[in-house]
Computed example of a mutant assay.
Amino acid sequence: MSSENRDDIVNDQEDLNTETSNQETEVSENELTVEDQVLNLQAELDKEKDKFLRLFAEFENYKRRTGKERVEMFKTAGQEVMQSMLPVLDDFDRALIEIQKAKDKNLQKGVELISNKLRETLKSKGLKEMEVSAGDVFDADIHEAITQIPAPKDSLKGKIVDVIEKGYELGEKIIRFPKVVTGK
């Protein structure tokens, strides 16, 4: 073998080693790039999952809130109508008291039937009379004090002496507070 051939073989061998080394480097770079791509895609997927979960939670909260609002609206939908009917109930109470004084049994029976029918109809729609009587403890959250008078008995101090106007609830909401006189 001549020296030129030997040099050619050595050069070819070096070229082959360099080429192999370059290919290994390219493969390593490609692997890193693929790994980076996988990590990037995983990060994007996690971001989209988080976005989806937040949106889903917001929607569930919206459904729950609107559901509660709708139920509340149905409970109090007729509040204005009910409030306008309360003076009619008061008038029936006053009429019954006056008819009892007149001692006309037929008239009293007829007015009681109409009064009871109206009360039952309103009760079926959610109207409920608040139970308040003389001697009950006064509570500013559920009673409206019109005036204070000297208590006829010591046991009535700070308590309800008289109920001037009945109170009513529609569902769980007070639509008219009972008007009372308290003892001092």
Results as ranks from 00 to 15, higher is better:
Asn5Val: 06
Asp7Ile: 10
Asp7Ala: 13
Ile9Val: 12
Asn17Gln: 11
Asn17Pro: 00
Thr18Val: 08
Glu19Asp: 12
Asn22His: 14
Gln23Phe: 10
Glu24Ala: 14
Val27Arg: 10
Glu29Ala: 10
Glu29Ser: 11
Glu29Ile: 08
Glu31Pro: 00
Glu31Met: 12
Glu35Leu: 09
Glu35Tyr: 05
Leu41Thr: 05
Gln42Ala: 12
Glu44Ser: 13
Leu45His: 11
Lys47His: 15
Lys49Phe: 10
Lys51Val: 07
Leu53Glu: 13
Lys63Ser: 08
Arg65Ala: 12
Gly67Asn: 13
Met73Pro: 05
Phe74Gly: 07
Thr76Ser: 05
Gly78Cys: 06
Gln79Phe: 04
Glu80His: 08
Glu80Phe: 03
Met82Pro: 06
Met85Trp: 03
Val88Lys: 02
Asp90Val: 04
Asp91Gly: 02
Asp91Thr: 12
Phe92Val: 08
Arg94Cys: 05
Leu96His: 05
Leu96Met: 14
Ile97Trp: 01
Lys105Met: 07
Asn106Tyr: 01
Lys109Phe: 10
Leu113Arg: 15
Ile114Thr: 13
Ser115Gly: 09
Asn116Ser: 15
Glu120Met: 07
Leu122Gln: 05
Ser124Thr: 10
Lys128Trp: 02
Glu129Asn: 00
Met130Gln: 11
Met130Lys: 06
Glu131Arg: 08
Glu131Trp: 00
Gly135Lys: 02
Ile142Ala: 04
Gln148Lys: 12
Ile149Lys: 11
Ile149Leu: 07
Pro152Phe: 02
Lys153Thr: 15
Ser155Met: 10
Lys157Val: 14
Ile160Gln: 03
Ile160Glu: 06
Val161Met: 04
Ile164Met: 11
Ile164Asn: 08
Glu165Tyr: 05
Lys173Gln: 09
Ile174Asn: 00
Lys179Arg: 07
Val181Ser: 09
Val181Glu: 09
Val181Met: 07
